[in-house]
Nucleic acid binder design. Sequence first.
DNA 1: GAGTATAATGCAACAATGTTGCAAAATTAA
DNA 2: TTAATTTTGCAACATTGTTGCATTATACTC
Lengths: 169, 169
Amino acid sequence: MLVEKHPLKPQSLLSLKLKPYWSGNYSLYKMLNPQEILKKNSFRVTQHRCEVLTYFIQSKIALNHRQLELKYRGTINRVSLYRILHSFTEKKILCKLIDSVGSVSYVLDKHSSQNDSHVHPHYKCKTCHDVVELPELPADYRRELEKLNVLQLNMLAEGICQECQKSMK
Amino acid sequence: MLVEKHPLKPQSLLSLKLKPYWSGNYSLYKMLNPQEILKKNSFRVTQHRCEVLTYFIQSKIALNHRQLELKYRGTINRVSLYRILHSFTEKKILCKLIDSVGSVSYVLDKHSSQNDSHVHPHYKCKTCHDVVELPELPADYRRELEKLNVLQLNMLAEGICQECQKSMK
DNA sequence: GAGTATAATGCAACAATGTTGCAAAATTAA
DNA sequence: TTAATTTTGCAACATTGTTGCATTATACTC
Ligand SMILES: [Mn+2]
Ligand SMILES: [Mn+2]
Ligand SMILES: [Zn+2]
Ligand SMILES: [Zn+2]
């Protein structure tokens, strides 16, 4: 059986799609200030929420509760931090990442404005905590997952990113 | 550009490979008794380890520490249970599953005897805690993950399995 | 089978992480 | 400015997992 094969080399699954987490339409977060983001999600604009959101926007990496507790010690109560992280995650401002030992961290959700519900596999550098969003799983694979009535998917890859590998030499 | 295309319809990624977690060569666990499994992994054959391993083999589902603590209350100390789970996981007798809220459970590792180091995505039913092992991620996708120097991958899909959906009607 | 080295266990204490109820304070809308 | 509503801080509690150390069980040698 002979068929026409597209002359272009098939594009690698990731190479073309994988971008720094903060490129492209994610610049949305640079245009909207924290106040607007909060309002857009029908939150009250409080000092604490603004500061935490600003910190996530500035630092661009995954942060865990402990880091925030240290940064805001004497300023924001630890319970309030839990509640802020929880509510931000609920509204998809943040994305909750759970690694292979069960440790939790949060990163600004690239898709918070897009109102889609697809799977979000992420890659997180174990050293600098930088996060890139991996492309969705291939369609065939997703289709089969659907057959299993998948309701939640926890997927996080971890490693040492290129940058950190360079600076280790 | 004309190339030979294989006349067989490409097989679905999962349909052909997905089997009940306990079929096939997993019957290994039905042949080896717990004592032999422990010896094979250079553990001392203790009452506690035999009981826990037997329980995993018999129940065939994912179990968490709490369940074991309840089952063995008054018999096995909770710290010992943690240590047993930890050592079994280390030797790949058990596989540690972490779901999308961070809850941990353990299931007998289908590949414990095969000495391979590939990724093990699993599907766990939220109701009956039955586990099936998903096929590996497609090769293209895995290759790209490799480029990111992936050291760990946490991947667990959850949903309501067919059996449980039937019995819900 | 007794003796010995080594590993497993129980216990207490600790640590990390997350939750709940409620009063006080801050924000919003009128 | 007032009043409704949400957010916050605090204390207390819950869950999950870890560590050090004395005691006990197992495996190995004789
Ligand atoms: Mn998305
Ligand atoms: Mn395997
Ligand atoms: Zn890095
Ligand atoms: Zn089920």
